[in-house]
Design a protein around this nucleic acid. Structure first.
Length: 199
DNA sequence: GACCGGATTGGC
DNA sequence: CCAATCCGGTCC
């Protein structure tokens, strides 16, 4: 299948977030290859979005990659123990990004189980959350800034997203009015989406 | 240099 | 409900 080109990412995060559903995220790591269909995303729309790390043009070491042209990995550590993977969007100087929140595992399930440790869990529980999917896919801070149009970490065309639902984003109660914006997208009826959010 | 809190998760 | 765990951001 076709790897998504740079042009795919040079758009508003809302469009990119919606269009990533059904596509396949692939990580070709030294340990082996893992992949999964994207079933849940959230758009973070930069300087005007109170939930975004780049709100009001915040330009720090962490947000730097968002100001480059879209299509790079923005990976950060949350709560000191989980990584979150975002893919940057928009042209240079427009710091949009899309948080990948859940995957339907498609390749390397055994490696995912191993990375998650303990005893095997159901496939639906392997990557149904932003922290869990990074763990299963072997994504950490060393991938910060990696070009998603290269061959180490990328997204390729997958299935057509039949029915897409929207809801407010998860865990952004601090964002004032923006916490209610319907900028979370997920595949209707998928058993692989994250659990916490009320659906 | 100190302090604060988080785009989460799993256990109680 | 709440602790885990630590880095980035902010402010002094």
């Amino acid at each position: 299948m076709q790897v998504l080109p740079r042009s795919f990412y040079l758009r508003d995060a809302l469009e990119v977030a919606r269009d990533l559903l059904g596509c396949e995220l692939v990580h070709d790591s030294p340990e082996g290859l893992t992949a999964g269909f994207i079933v849940e995303t959230e758009a973070y729309r930069g300087v005007d979005d109170a939930a975004s790390h780049a709100y009001r043009g915040a330009r720090t070491g962490r947000t730097a990659v968002m100001y480059l042209s879209g299509g790079r990995a923005y990976v950060y550590l949350i709560y000191g123990m989980y990584y979150c993977l975002n893919i940057t969007a928009g042209p240079e100087e427009v710091p949009h990004c899309v948080l990948i929140r859940a995957l339907e595992p498609s390749q390397g399930l055994e490696l995912m189980q191993m990375r998650n440790g303990t005893k095997p869990v159901k496939a639906t529980a392997l990557a149904n959350g932003p922290g869990k999917l990074c763990r299963a896919m072997g994504i950490d801070g060393s991938l910060y800034g990696v070009d998603m149009c290269d061959d180490r970490l990328f997204v390729r065309e997958g299935r057509r997203a039949e029915a897409v639902s929207v809801s407010p984003r998860v865990g952004v109660d601090y964002a004032g009015a923006a916490k209610a914006f319907p900028w979370r997208f997920y595949l209707e009826g998928s058993q692989y989406v994250s659990k916490r959010p009320n659906r």
